[in-house]
Write a protein that binds this DNA or RNA. Structure first.
Lengths: 140, 140
DNA sequence: GCCAATTTTGCAACTTTGTTGCAAATGATA
DNA sequence: TATCATTTGCAACAAAGTTGCAAAATTGGC
């Protein structure tokens, strides 16, 4: 059951289980794709304060439950991390796909980011790859 | 002479040559790396209004003079486009390098983005690749 | 160089987005 | 269930970005 998984995840991250945290995690799981702060706020505004949403997303970031995705329009999008995302250190070296039609952002875990040869003297720590295009559902 | 180049570029983009546009282009040329709106504002605040900077950057975007770079901290960075950037359609398929120490963002034109195989049904239009690490100048 | 038409700028006012401090409410633990 | 620590909501604020409109600057023809 989903509700149980959510509680497990919060416990594992050493976070107390509160209504807002449960609800926000649920929203991410149901959404399936990445969400902006605004999206989360919209879906919870009747219940939780704006500030609570900000703080909850921040906490989830710190605990490695969600990560941000750099998009070309530079709006901050958050997505659930995978199993092996540890606190502080993310394994989100996968490709993010942004659909130009429906706007959905998908994490393509199956495709890993190719290695590249940087010029002399440069050292890479993290590589982000964002692909814009048309997704499976929107293809006519 | 740089001043001449700037005027040429504005003319080519069918923009009237105004003080603020000249000055802002000059700032980008001198900077060499990508700049946030804030950076531009700082360097011009004595002369030009905040709103003018916003509108100028917007105009430059539309005309393909500058493009945005998706960064991991999701702050909007603007950088000069290369020769072959046409109005509306950017050829900025190069790698952007963000130095974690000095913060400078460099466009690595010499390295082109590798092609990747997307899952069935997905179609890529634009690929953005942002590499975070340590740059030549900051390497101890 | 000057004049009229158009474009651009600055100002003011506003909306949206994000932050901080503090008291009240909630959750964890014994 | 009582206590302590954490989390929440509120208020107030700071920063980022937008819009309408009148004044100023730019362009192109004369």
């Amino acid at each position: 059951m989903v509700e149980e998984q959510i509680i497990q995840l919060l416990r594992k991250s050493q976070l107390s289980v509160t209504d807002s945290r449960r609800k926000i995690l649920e929203i991410f799981i149901q959404a399936g794709s990445a969400l902006a702060h605004h999206d989360v706020e919209e879906k919870t505004s009747e219940r939780y304060d704006r500030v609570t949403v900000y703080r909850t997303l921040q906490t989830f970031m710190e605990k490695g439950i969600i990560h941000t995705i750099p998009t070309t329009d530079n709006s901050i999008k958050y997505a659930l991390c995978k199993e092996d995302c540890a606190e502080g250190h993310h394994h989100d070296n996968h490709i993010h796909f942004v659909c130009e039609i429906c706007g959905a952002i998908t994490c393509m875990d199956e495709i890993h980011v190719p290695t590249i040869n940087l010029p002399e003297g440069y050292h890479a720590n993290q590589i982000n790859m964002v692909v814009n295009g048309i997704c499976k559902n929107c293809k006519a």
